[in-house]
């Protein structure tokens, strides 16, 4: 009977660890933050006719990526409130009128030791934005920003799946993801290509 008892106790310990590791740990590891206001990509695409990501997320003439648009860009349409929503009020009153940039939380910001050129990937390799950023540009809600409590990075860098198995092609922005994509496309880049 002791043998069965030992097996049961071992299995119980195993189950507790698996439960903690797969269910509790991800919830504890990431804290959630909210964007300063609700931004709807879909509404902007439909109502404003903004069809191309590059209209707001521009690549400058010198090839550098401007990232998130400056508040002046938003002010082009939202210099005054164009709706009654709470987000509209926050945008106009807190950021556009005082001239402050909206402190967006960037989901895909890379670590500081990585040099990544959007210009090379978009213009030379002809990658579409969705290959890395999924169809977020068509979303009708703003995602919660999950930040890793230890590293301080966005969850999008690791990807939503904790095991990193059976991920969607756009999920995850770790170095291994870059390497995998380059391998698939037979594009060789040495260490100094990204860590210059």
């Amino acid at each position: 009977m002791s043998k069965w008892r030992n097996s049961f106790v071992f299995a119980f310990g195993l189950a507790v660890a698996l439960l903690l590791g797969w269910v509790v740990f991800p919830r504890v590891l990431y804290s959630q933050k909210h964007q300063p206001l609700d931004f709807l990509h879909k509404t902007h695409a439909e109502k404003s006719g903004v069809a191309d990501c590059a209209e707001c997320h521009t690549i400058r003439e010198d090839g550098t990526f401007a990232g998130l648009p400056a508040v002046e860009k938003c002010a082009g349409c939202h210099s005054e409130r164009v709706g009654e929503s709470k987000a509209e009020a926050i945008l106009v009153d807190s950021y556009i009128k005082p001239g402050h940039d909206t402190p967006w939380l960037a989901y895909a910001r890379q670590p500081a030791n990585v040099w990544f050129s959007h210009a090379i990937h978009v213009k030379r390799a002809n990658l579409s934005c969705t290959e890395c950023h999924s169809t977020y540009g068509e979303s009708d809600r703003v995602r919660v920003y999950e930040v890793n409590r230890i590293s301080g990075y966005s969850r999008d860098i690791w990807g939503h799946s904790m095991s990193r198995l059976r991920r969607a092609p756009h999920e995850g922005m770790k170095m291994s993801d870059c390497e995998e994509c380059h391998k698939q496309r037979n594009v060789e880049v040495g260490c100094l290509g990204c860590h210059q």
Partner: peptide, 18 residues
């Protein structure tokens, strides 16, 4: 025994690697 089971289980989770 419980600790051994938990340790084995932990290795099968993303905790140590992550």
């Amino acid at each position: 025994v419980w600790g051994a089971g938990a340790a084995a289980g932990l290795l099968a989770t993303p905790v140590p690697w992550k």
